[in-house]
Structure formats: structure tokens, C-alpha cells
């Protein structure tokens, strides 16, 4: 659901303690945190995120937002890159450790329905909410998933997607050429857009990558949904820290009016 008017509250958000089931290390700075212990009725939709307090201490002070890559059999998989003090603490958690969790938060990608043909452009940890969309997609839809990684070891979450019966076609690209095409996932997306017709484009990843996807979607005039990550405070829409600018000059909150927004209503060019 994309917010057509600004929301007043995160309707289903709760604060609760989850527990670490496991930490799967993929590379020296990329890992999957598997959390369990969610309350009854916890039902995140693709694109929603959890806001985690990584430490009971006063530093790091703020919670950290993470997209939910999958939620199956009570286990939420969170793909995390170590980029600072918060993510480093999470990487060192042990099975059984408690995590102060707020969620589920935010808007969702539209469900991929029968007849849809969707182009996904995801890079780095930005592939996580797109993987969630794939799990939720109709079996009678078509998806081309441009999946950008730094190297082969970062490929995860897509097991079974490329079976012939499955509608998800994964197009891998890597920075170092160790898997798939060597180069940007947007190069593949650009080629696919010339070859095929899509009903929607989804993106999540580094800002520069999403800005490029935005230009491609704009050129073809295709509905375009982007999951934005802007530095967040409360995650509830109250602090007004995590705003992005629209072409009309409004400031919209990425935590509650996003993270998934109409990508055509974002000023992508940064000065």
C-alpha cells in the first residue's frame, strides 16, 4: 500500500523482545540475522521494516531500521551490512540474545498479481525487501530480478527462484565479476527495459542505483516503487527527521509515508 495521504500512525506497530535464532555470516561485512519470538498476529508485508535497539546502552542511542527479507515459520531474516557502530553490535549477537524490536513499520510494495510483469532492481542489502516481494508474488506473474552484489559470496535469499516453474528470473551482476555479469545491475535493467514490457518497476539499494532506475522507469513511463532509506529517528512519524523531498518541495517522512513510495515523486538528483 502506498500512502495517498499522509498517515497518522503505524497501525500495527508494537514494541517487543525478539531473540536471535542465528547469525549467518556471508562475507566479512554482510550477514543475515535470524530473529524469533514475534508476538501473535505479527504479519509483516513486503517492504516493511523492523526498528531495532541494538544495545540497552546510551550509545548507539537510536534504533536502526532494517527491511524484513522473509518471515516464515516465525523466523524473520534480516540482511545487514556492517557500516557502523549499530550494525557491528548486531553482527556480534549470539543465539538466544534478546533484541528490543519495534515493528512492523512502514508502507509496502504493491503485491505482484496475476498478469503483472515486474522489473526489480536491487543492490547490496537493498535486495532484501525485493526478495520478500518475490515470496509473496502470484505464480501467474512475471518477474525479472536484477540482483546486484559485490561478489559471489553475497548471493543469498534466491534459492529456487530460477526454477523453470517459477516466475522469478534472477539476473545476477557483481562488482568483481565473480558471479553473473560484471557491472551494475542497472545495466541489465536498462537492456531488459528495451526488450520487454513491464507493468511496474521496483527498486531498493544505494541512492545512485535507485536514481538510475528512476530515470529508466521515467523514460518508459512505468509505475515505479522505491524503498528509501533515510536516516531515521523514531520510526513512527513523530520526529520528522527522515524526510525526503518531493518535486513539489514537500518533505515526506520515509518511515511512515515510506519506506516504499511512488518513486516518481522523489527528487533523485542530489546537489
Amino acid at each position: 500500500m502506498i500512502a495517498t495521504e499522509h498517515r497518522y500512525c503505524q497501525e500495527n506497530a508494537r514494541v517487543f523482545k525478539t531473540r536471535v535464532e542465528s547469525v549467518e555470516t556471508l562475507t566479512e561485512d554482510l550477514f543475515i540475522l535470524n530473529l524469533v519470538g514475534f508476538p501473535e498476529g505479527f504479519d509483516p508485508k513486503p517492504g516493511m521494516f523492523l526498528h531495532l535497539k541494538v544495545s540497552p546502552d546510551e550509545h548507539p542511542l537510536l534504533r536502526r531500521p532494517f527491511s524484513i527479507q522473509s518471515f516464515r515459520q516465525g523466523v524473520a531474516a534480516i540482511l545487514i551490512r556492517v557500516v557502523g557502530s549499530g550494525s557491528r553490535i548486531l553482527h556480534h549477537l549470539q543465539p538466544g540474545d534478546e533484541v528490543d524490536t519495534l515493528g512492523p513499520l512502514g508502507t509496502t510494495f504493491p503485491r505482484i498479481e496475476k498478469g503483472d510483469s515486474v522489473l526489480m532492481v536491487g543492490g547490496g542489502v537493498g535486495v532484501a525487501p525485493l526478495v520478500a516481494c518475490c515470496h509473496d508474488a502470484s505464480q501467474e506473474a512475471q518477474v525479472d530480478f536484477c540482483f546486484g552484489v559485490r561478489s559471489r559470496a553475497e548471493v543469498q535469499g534466491i534459492e529456487g527462484f530460477s526454477d523453470s516453474k517459477n516466475p522469478i528470473q534472477v539476473h545476477l551482476s557483481s562488482d568483481d565479476g565473480s558471479v553473473g555479469y560484471q557491472g551494475f545491475c542497472t545495466d541489465i535493467a536498462s537492456r531488459l527495459l528495451e526488450e520487454k514490457t513491464y507493468t511496474k518497476v521496483f527498486t531498493c539499494g544505494p541512492w545512485i542505483m535507485m536514481a538510475k532506475a528512476a530515470r529508466l522507469a521515467q523514460k518508459k513511463n512505468i509505475p515505479f516503487f522505491a524503498s528509501l532509506e533515510v536516516q531515521m529517528g523514531c520510526g513512527l512519524g513523530a520526529c520528522l527527521a527522515c524526510v525526503y523531498e518531493t518535486p513539489e518541495g514537500d518533505f515526506i517522512r520515509s518511515c511512515i509515508d515510506g519506506p516504499v513510495v511512488d518513486g516518481h515523486q522523489v527528487v533523485w538528483e542530489r546537489t
Binding site: 546510551e58 542511542l61 537510536l62 527527521a241 524526510v243
Partner: peptide, 11 residues
């Protein structure tokens, strides 16, 4: 924006 930065024990 940016409108908020985390400091040591402060915002």
C-alpha cells in the same frame, strides 16, 4: 535534510 545526527549519548 539531513535533519538528525546521532552523537555519543546525544542527538
Amino acid at each position: 535534510p539531513p535533519r538528525m545526527v546521532e552523537l555519543k549519548g546525544a542527538l
